[in-house]
Nucleic acid binder design. Structure first.
Lengths: 349, 349
DNA sequence: CTGAAAGCGCTTACAG
DNA sequence: CTGAAAGCGCTTACAG
């Protein structure tokens, strides 16, 4: 009797010969136990356990021509909402035996194409795109791939496939509208370069529309090029604001993190929030309600986006037909009005 | 001539027949171009491009008996340092053609075993464990797997394999020491349950040692059971502190996020930081230096942990021998003393 | 309820 | 420099 070779991988054949059945039967006992005699099934299960058999998922994927991988493409882990969406997605998908393959999107065209090729090379069961801009070439690659794709966190003009998101233009409009209704008139908008984050430009367009509707000046735009999602960006934006638009009475920031940086900088300079300057963010981060003053912001149900994405993906993978009207879901958002934008006084509109 | 079947996947054979060579040659032209005639190589490359050929990575993994996947097991995406480590890891690994497979560790024994089996079933080229507790059974599974494992963000007693981390006990000791040297005497420690996060208990042990060394009381322990990493945990801990140990003059929190919550709660209650109560955190989050007062904390070079982990993994994958002394790397940490723990006065030790 | 064959798409030696 | 064969570890029909 040869000594057991501890280095050699345990395969389905090892289990089969040990249990005295064919590999077919092992495969069936493990995946479709209802098709196997109870006795055989138990024997196989015990043997598999005894030998510490772990099925090779790559071999399974190959034989079945599909994998249990869900690819997630996202621009940044520094936005709390994205993380919560991933957690929601992960929780549901894992229960169904799927794994998450993560890819950061670094916005460079070449890197994007390479990332997409690597992802498609894994034959994922589905692809989730979080809020990311795609080149035409990249979009074509995804459309041709025949893999279910869900774009999230925005409502693209020409969806690749399915969409679960909300309108950034509406966010910008609603927040600006809120500030106007609270009595603010000289409102500035802090954005990042469109190339890096087209969504902030969409929100900006909503801001412009709201101000135009009221005949107010919509030209106060500050664009942050250095680490636009960082707290430091908030500090920089206050500096630019004071220099370029000193009479501003309210500012809408890129994210809550940026808004927090702006609030800190205001305190340092003795600028009172909101009586001297109102500040609003975007994303309703965990800290936002705890700040002093608490931060006005936009709330998106990030967990729900993740869960709904998972459910949609599962349906698509199961081959269920999706009504065209269910291919694009607008999850909406809400304005959370807090102390940082409290009413200026009784200026009527 | 049959119409091209647009749904059928393009395989290596399609490229081969289109280019008029054998598939072998296609495989070689793509992976080891230096072994192929320039003319042939160019022809193959053009044909592959023309047909939009994307190699099936699962098939490749199977044939080669190893994948280009790196599995990452982590407890939570809500700790900034973990995210930065992942970014460092990802940046290096991607350059080398590896992908990250993410798994959240939910601390339940069953889930952990299932997660590990799924991960091992993918035959990853390496496994990175971020700061997570493993059952004996799970550890055995990993040790038996013959896959390089790097444990990070702590220094385990019995490493599974390689380690890149730091001593949490030393962190607790150093921070307590710092507070003592700043004149604080009644120091409390905020931890989470050991089952959820054994590292906070390790830091607590360092705290006890430091206080004992100075003959000070080391019994002020507050354990947070509800969302121990959240900002709300900071609020809760201040409440408990005032009730149970009202004469406390300094507190060491689980993370900067918790410390932030504690600071906010103090402001709400009119408790001055640091003159009434000093507060220290852990992790040096991005916001920590921006808080008012700025937050004293522990800094760990999280990006460096990621980069070093990647490099170690690449060496192991390449088969390079690692000296036993290089198997455990202590990256250390530093105490960042800021306003929230400024000197109490001139109490000499 | 169980098994022998073919094949998923690639790579690794081995020839030439 | 290039090709025919065998095989990676599984699953999917097809028989019995």
């Amino acid at each position: 009797m040869p000594a057991p070779n501890s280095k050699k991988r345990v395969t389905i054949k090892d289990v089969a010969s040990e249990a005295g059945v064919s590999w077919m039967t092992v495969s069936r006992a493990l995946h479709t136990p209802e098709l196997v005699a109870v006795k055989t099934r138990k024997l196989v299960e015990q043997t598999a356990q005894k030998l510490n058999y772990i099925p090779d998922l790559a071999a399974g994927s190959l034989a079945r021509s599909r994998s249990n991988l869900i690819a997630v493409i996202l621009p940044s882990l520094y936005f709390e909402g994205h993380i919560r969406t991933i957690e929601g997605l992960s929780a549901v998908m894992r229960r169904e035996g799927f794994h998450l393959l993560m890819g950061d999107d670094y916005y460079s065209h070449n890197e994007e194409m390479e990332l997409l090729r690597m992802i498609l090379g894994r034959r994922p069961a589905g692809i989730v795109v979080i809020n990311s801009a795609h080149s035409q070439e990249g979009r074509k690659l995804l459309m041709r791939s025949d893999v279910p794709v869900v774009e999230t966190w925005h409502l693209p003009q020409n969806p690749i496939d399915s969409v679960i998101g909300f309108s950034h233009a509406n966010v910008g409009f609603a927040m600006t509208q809120h500030l106007i209704s609270e009595g603010y008139r000289n409102i500035a908008f802090v954005a990042s370069p469109a190339k890096i984050d087209p969504r902030s430009k969409e929100r900006h367009s909503g801001y412009v529309k709201a101000l135009n509707d009221h005949g107010l000046d919509a030209s106060r735009l500050i664009t942050i090029t250095n680490n636009p999602l960082s707290i430091t960006a908030g500090k920089d934006s206050v500096e630019q604001l004071l220099e370029r638009y000193p009479d501003t009475d309210a500012m809408i920031c890129l994210t809550d993190r940026v808004a927090m940086g702006a609030m800190m900088e205001c305190r340092r300079r003795g600028i009172n929030v909101p009586s001297d300057l109102a500040i609003a963010g975007h994303g309703d981060f965990e800290f936002s309600e705890h700040l002093v003053p608490s931060l006005t912001t936009t709330r998106i149900d990030a967990l729900d986006i993740g869960t709904q994405t998972a459910e949609l993906l599962l349906k698509r993978i199961a081959g269920t037909d999706i009504q065209p009207t269910d291919k694009t879901i607008d999850v909406g958002f809400s304005i959370v009005a807090r102390e940082s934008s409290q009413s200026r006084g009784s200026i009527s509109l």
